[in-house]
Nucleic acid binder design. Structure first.
Lengths: 238, 238
DNA sequence: CGCTAAAAGTTGTATAGTACAACCCACAAA
DNA sequence: TTTGTGGGTTGTACTATACAACTTTTAGCG
């Protein structure tokens, strides 16, 4: 290895992309945007994760950049946001060596379609079981999205992550439903309740009437910044 | 947001750093290297994580770059290597906006000091309880190192990660010792064994005599690429 | 006004997986 | 041959939970 005293060498592109999850219509969905149609752009017209180049003048750091990109697409300014990982290689972008820092966000389901935010790019929600076909996304976004889904599903087994997919206050049956949707299987009601309440991360917020037959207790997260980690996973006795 | 048709805008620096862990002398240790002493370099003479700029000509992707940097420092070519995360901001490097992709590696303890690899940089192993003082590392490497330690310790609670810190074949008592060193607390022998064997990720490799009084069964990992995830954490009855 | 359906929430039981502790076993050194 | 040390096993108590049956509270309706 040579010691580099000069900084005069080629630099890769630096990007930030965001995988935005929400539960809409009882299904886990992801927000995708369409690439511009100009033939001069890579992957014109293809669906892609929202994101783009870091702007060294505007973005103080990677997280701020991710928050900016998320806000531009959803007008949501304080979602749950965690770093997923980074992908970089000389091949992933035809324009040259590029590396993207990927975050994943969990937001409460908006009923309306995504805000167009004044910018021309189309955006759309895609249920995970109805994604654009394999290899259909731009760049390596197929692979990134798979990694995000895997991370989400595995963390849902042993954390309170799904709580970030609901607007507050939410009830325990609602929360359980989200767990079942993300995990793709039924969860026992009794065990679920004792576990959630035992972890002591929820604050009561009064009974929620009107939603169902009998009013259910509403809860808020005591700390919206970080999920709670359970000491065990949910283990059905197969 | 403007659509960027031109690629003529400033790019951040792109780096890769590696946090290399090993257990030596019954303590968890990290490999650090000294920054060059030139006053023109940032943080001259300070300890830092091994790493540096991505070389767009040599490095096919981020992982390859991390492997290269690790090999240059340790001459080890197939350790356990996983991505830790990335850190990027306009402030972390005085030379300008920079982003580093950080990997963490677990290697079997080398008895010899780190290979100097022909390059002048000094390198040294530091036990976690005897690190250079707070704020002593270059860049934001203090923060990165703390994150790496946190990730390692939390994953050790519920994965087979410590197995990558031992040369094969290893015995269960040896493996248990590594768990105890990393976790910083005693682990029950009986429970440890049943758990490890129940997870079915070890292959017997014959009795290892000479190590202790009574020969112990040696084991090899069935799959050296990925750690095994346990359904529960170790939970002493406080 | 009471009956009924449906969802919220509770209670009870069997069981799996350990934490803890006491034990036996194989070898090496004296 | 004895003895010490670490490897490995066995046995018991306990805890969380999976599963299932149950009670409670409301809305809707005749």
């Amino acid at each position: 290895m040579k010691t580099r005293t000069s900084l005069d060498f080629p630099r890769p592109f630096t990007l930030v992309d965001v995988v935005i999850f929400a539960v809409r219509a009882d299904r886990l969905q992801v927000l995708l945007v369409r690439r511009p149609a100009h033939e001069s752009d890579p992957f014109p017209g293809r669906w892609a994760l929202p994101g783009g180049f870091v702007d060294v003048a505007r973005d103080a750091d990677l997280l701020a950049c991710a928050q900016r990109k998320l806000f531009e697409k959803t007008a949501i300014d304080s979602p749950y946001l965690e770093q997923l990982g980074s992908w970089g290689s000389m091949r992933r972008d035809p324009r040259g060596w590029s590396a993207t820092h990927v975050y994943f966000a969990l937001i409460a389901a908006p009923d309306a379609p995504p805000a167009e935010g004044g910018n021309a790019a189309q955006a759309g929600w895609f249920p995970l079981d109805a994604l654009p076909g394999r290899r259909a996304l731009a760049f390596d976004h197929d692979e990134i999205l798979r990694a995000a889904i895997e991370r989400l599903q595995s963390k849902v087994e042993y954390t309170s992550l799904p709580a970030f997919l609901l607007p507050e206050p939410f009830t325990l049956p609602q929360l359980q439903r989200i767990y079942e949707i993300v995990l793709g299987r039924a969860v026992d009601k009794s065990g679920f309740r004792t576990r959630m309440l035992a972890m002591d991360f929820l604050d009561e917020a009064g009974y929620q009437s009107g939603e169902a037959k009998r009013p259910a207790m509403g809860y808020r997260l005591r700390d919206r910044r970080v999920p709670v980690v359970f000491p065990r996973t949910f283990n059905p006795r197969r």
